[in-house]
Design a protein around this nucleic acid. Sequence first.
RNA 1: GGGAGCGUAGAACAGCCUGGAGUGUUCGCCGGCCUGUCAAGCCGGAGGUCGCGGGUUCAAAUCCCGUCGUUCCCGCCA
Length: 590
Amino acid sequence: MIRSHGAGAVLASEIGNTVTVAGWVQRRRDHGGVAFFDVRDASGLVQVVADPAEHPIVDDLKMEYCVRVEGVVRPRPVGTENPDLVTGSVEIGAVDIQVLAAAKTLPFMIDDRSDVDELVRLRHRYLDLRRPRMAANLRARSKTTAAIRRTLDQLGFLEVETPTLINSTPEGARDMLVPSRLRQGEFYALPQSPQLFKQLLMISGVERYFQIARCYRDEDFRADRQLEFTQLDLEGSYWARDDVLATIEKVLAAVVADLRGVELGLPLPRLTWTEAMNRYGVDKPDIRFGMEITDLGETVSSCGFSVFTDALDAGGTVRGINAGPIEWSRSKADLLTARAKELGAKGLVWAVVEDDGSLRSPASKFFETWETEAIKGDLSASSGDVLLIVADSRWKTCVSVLGSLRNDLGRPKDHSELSFLWVVDFPMFEEREDGSITFSHHPFTSPQSVDDLRTRPREAVSNAYDVVVNGIELGSGSIRIHDPVVQRQVFDILGIDASEAERRFGWFLEALEYGTPPHGGFAFGIDRLVMVLQNEGSIREVIPFPKTQTGLDPLTGAPTWVDDSQLGDLGLSLSETALERRDEKTLDPG
RNA sequence: GGGAGCGUAGAACAGCCUGGAGUGUUCGCCGGCCUGUCAAGCCGGAGGUCGCGGGUUCAAAUCCCGUCGUUCCCGCCA
């Protein structure tokens, strides 16, 4: 036995006992005649006291040396207790000190104070994970999956593993591909979600399925997006929408209780998609703050500003937000206008409410006094407030731009407050720029009305729903299509003709033919949930070994070039471009 | 695919706008002193391809172009 106690378990109750602890040297404080050092392990930290004359080895102890200390627990002298430390009322008087393993000079210090470049952290992730905050994040993640499993087990769910080498379905996100050796020229795809397998499990009679599933999407990175991520995936038979929502709410409540120690108010608030878009301009609203979008169309319908009237004449809309008394300057106006254009608006009209009630704005001269007053009234504006107004011939462009500006300006910087909500009644389809139609959720989502699907698919509302926390899309689900006729109909509307549907999804359509129970389910991102609950700004902080934005793991160097013989086994060869890149990189790595 | 920011000692930065010797700060590292510290303190020291390549210039960390890396954003993400 190397140790008798965890460092964090050396409490006042051990006074007088001989204990052995093992861990890393946090810091050494050598006063000449007496020296202190802290031993840190996964359980916490305890102070060791040694006389350097008696224990010359303390001179050698550097930060992060792995040591073993045997000693007697004693109370600290009065006045030297450390209230910030769980073990702060005691210390270990060293009897024997051994170095188990020396450590090189560290690339960064193992504490939460040091602000270190992420690339350096990732290159030495094993050290980064020693930092208390990162260790806590790992622990929180484990507690999250434990709470999920506990809750779903109590509800009678079966945890089932589905394959990760599956077939590619090019809709939606780009697939991560894996070449087959035994069947040269053919490829597996890594799953973007276990969607069809869990539906098959419903057909198999599992009735209550879940899986904590690694999923893969080969798309560009964001602070909340990695190539691989982990989802809680679940599905149930004979479920209506509210059965799914209630189940997810129970899971979320259990996780929030375990990680935050607070009770989640259930049921969670619900917004329809249309309401969310109209009030917040996004389908994942952050409702921790107001600044809601207001329709100014009626107010400005006869004003002299052609930007507004032209948009209205084209069947569009004019809407605004009251950004409140924010600091305003020419450069701020330029910045926000550029942002609005980046988001797809043709421009941005701003107005500052002056003390005399007038509007200072490039557009103010176009408004009659009554119009100025009406705009202020619509937006509940008072002196000093900044009003931002967007006009567009497309409703969705207008509200989306304002919704993003609203987020830019008002969104709380952290997640100390939690605001979960459901967004329900998503449209079944959405239009692309070119006017063609695509699914807004996925092609296995059922419509609320099969009649609508047939007669006016562009207006059809789906049985899809999202759960959102603090403006972050946590996950989504739906009641699925269990009728193969309807499923074929949806493929048809999406422009997948019968023969193509048969070729790609024939196996699934056939499965639906054998008495498929009505079913539905959900999936939410565990990385994102833990990120929010741990009050982190990026999922990389809660993923033990994440990748950088270009898909590199700075620690292992993945992805790497492989031997030509390996490529040969797979029937693959590299393109000219790839070969050039390889030669450059081989000469000048990194 | 596009836009923006960043890259200077082991770490975090300042210096760059307005070119003039690798100048500076904090932490770490090395040596010394020190009997109650806990981000110990004091004294001394070492440590640099200013990401890389090119250009402008008498002179480049600084200005220009390119490139690599990284972060954030737009597109993309059923």
